[in-house]
Structures are given as C-alpha cells and as structure tokens.
C-alpha cells in the first residue's frame, strides 16, 4: 500500500521486489551457464539472439533452458500455493502438503510404477491426478456449509496419513518396482524438458495472474471471517476458489518435480519477514523468490558434487531450514 507518509516501507517493498527480479535473472544466467560443460556468456547471448546450431545451442535449448524454466516455475507455483494456503487457512504451518497434494501425488505415482512399470512416462499425469483426488477428499471431509479451516487441516493430516500408509505398504510389498519413485519423491529436475514446461506453464500463468486479483480478499481474510464478511467479501466462495487454485498450482509442480516439501512452507515466511503480510506485495515476491530458490538450488545441486547430482529437495532442506531459523531469530531481536 503506497502511502505518502510511509516512504521507507514502500521503498523497502520495491527494493525487495526489484532485487528479486534481478536475482532471478542472475540465477537464470548461472543455471544456464554452469554444468558439466561450461557455456560462456557470448555463447549464451548468441543462442538467445537466434543462433540455431552448434553444441552450445543444443545444450542450452534442449537441456539447460527447459530445466531452468521448469525449476523456476515449480518454485513459483509451490511458493505461491503455500502463501495462499497460509492466508486462506489462517495457519502459518499450512503448505501444499496439508491439503493432501503431496501424499496423493506420491501414492498415485507409486501405484503407476507398481501396476504398469513400463509407463513411467505417465508419472506426472498420475501424480497430478492423485494430488487433485487427495485434495478433493480433504475438501469433502472439511465441508460444512463452506470450508472450515481447522477441519481442513485435520482432514488433510488424516488423508496424508492414510495415503502415506498406502505408500509404505507399496514400498514393503514391491521394493523392487518402486526404485524410480524413490528418486522422484526426493524431488529433482534431471532430464526435465519442454514438455514439462508445457505441463506447468498454464497453471503458473493462471495461478499467478488469478491470485493477484485476490490479494485484497486474502488481506481481508487475515482479519478473520467476520470482519471479512463485514467488508463485503464472500468468504466461502473466495476460500473455495483460492484453495482450488493453490491445489492446482501445487499439483502441477509436484507432478513435474516430485515432492519438494520445503518451498511452499518456508518461502512465504521468509518473504513475509521482508515485505510484511500485505498480499499485494507478498504474492508477487513469494512467486519470484520461490523461483529463485528452486532454480538456484537446482543449479548448485547438480554442480557442486559434479558428476554426482544431489536431489534438490534434500539440498534445499539442508540449506534452507537453517537460513529460515536464522531469519526468524533475527526478526525476533528487531
């Protein structure tokens, strides 16, 4: 909210957003240039200027660029989904896992690998369907003339436990067939292509643009349902729309990248510490920083122990959690 007398805060918010876009650009550049084969800056610019041949073109166009874009979109989608859920459910612990997305995606991906192991190419589709189905179940269980946030969280925990049990059972009964899923569940971007970009992009665009329209509703929901009704928000409808939107955002991300649990929970919190809880700034900043985090983490995860690649989910948890705790302590002392 831009206010004459409140220059420092709005300035800080613009700085955070501006820095975000700058960092996004830098991260993208590094992600494209680093790897098993180093691609120099002139080579990158020549490819972007339209050079259509050579090794650099193939590496960039077929390998690194789609992978980088997928990582960025996944990060943005997950972070945005978490941010929306934390606002809608008014719970700081909410993340895409809490509405059943992760467990549903996980179980269905595993089922596919166990039942039709030759069709691993369909894992994203199965995971997406599973995520949507699990969210639907959580939705039905928490419906009581509208969505009750507390019931939704409890139903989410129960459904996650149930689906988690299913996953454990599959792991025990079919240990040989689920090798592929284990890697997928740790989360990663190895071999992600333009097809995956196409899978993600519609949800990213719809989710990002759509939720930007809802920042006022999210702000009002933070004040409690009664106040939100008082200022003319249709609380029930808004809540349903936003939960469905975040479920689709998260489901698309999880189906492409596996279970990256950390992004949706932590990125909104980090950004909230920086720009405050006004969703007008929180939503775009969250999307940008989510993209930076996942893109950067993927770049590092595939390069530091080259040629070994650490699953990016593990890498992010090890680096991100301590950083988040650091920010939390710093915020407290202020």
């Amino acid at each position: 909210m831009t206010i004459k007398q409140d220059d420092t805060r709005s300035k800080q918010r613009f700085v955070v957003l501006g820095t975000g876009f700058f960092l996004l650009f830098i991260t993208m550049f590094f992600s494209i240039s680093t790897g098993a084969v180093h691609v120099s800056f002139p080579e990158i610019t020549s490819v972007f200027m339209g050079a259509m041949d050579g090794e650099a073109y193939r590496i960039i166009y077929l390998l690194r660029l789609p992978r980088t874009i997928v990582a960025g979109l996944v990060g943005a989608n997950l972070a945005l989904a978490g941010c929306i859920l934390q606002g809608v459910l008014r719970n700081p612990l909410a993340d895409p896992g809490i509405i059943g997305v992760s467990s549903g995606a996980g179980l269905f991906a595993m089922l596919l690998m166990v039942l039709v192991p030759e069709q691993t190419i369909l894992v994203p589709v199965a995971a997406f369907l599973g995520a949507v189905l699990a969210t639907g179940i959580v939705f039905l269980l928490s419906w009581e003339r509208g969505i009750n946030p507390l019931r939704m969280i409890l139903a989410g925990v129960a459904v996650a436990a149930f689906f988690g049990g299913g996953m454990s059972a599959l792991m025990i009964f079919f240990p040989d067939r689920i090798q592929g899923t284990v890697a997928w569940m740790a989360g990663g971007f190895q071999g992600r292509s333009w097809n995956h970009v196409r899978l993600l992009l519609p949800y990213s665009v719809l989710g990002t643009v759509g939720t930007m329209f809802f920042y006022k509703q999210l702000n009002a929901l933070q004040l409690g349902d009664e106040v939100a009704v008082g200022v003319g928000i249709s609380v029930k409808r808004t809540r349903v729309i936003l939960i469905v939107a975040s479920a689709l955002l998260a489901a698309s991300a999880v189906s492409v990248a596996g279970l990256l649990g950390f992004v949706g929970l932590i990125v909104p919190h980090i950004v909230r510490l920086l720009v405050g809880s006004d969703h007008e700034y929180l939503l775009p900043c969250t999307a940008v920083y989510g993209a930076i985090l996942v893109m950067g983490a993927d770049t590092v995860a595939r390069t530091v122990f080259n040629p070994l690649e650490i699953p990016v989910g593990i890498f992010m948890a090890f680096l991100g959690a301590p950083f988040f705790l650091y920010l939390l302590r710093k915020g407290k002392h202020k």
Partner: peptide, 20 residues
C-alpha cells in the same frame, strides 16, 4: 460490524487496517 475478538497481523499499520 466490529466483531468482539478481531485480530490482525501485527505488521499492519493503523492506516493499512483503516484502508481495509
């Protein structure tokens, strides 16, 4: 309406709240 137990994020300013 001003409900009985209204709660807002602490990093909102008075003006932010009024703007709602």
């Amino acid at each position: 309406i001003l409900p009985q137990s209204a709660n807002a994020p602490g990093d909102m300013t008075v003006r932010d709240l009024t703007a709602c």
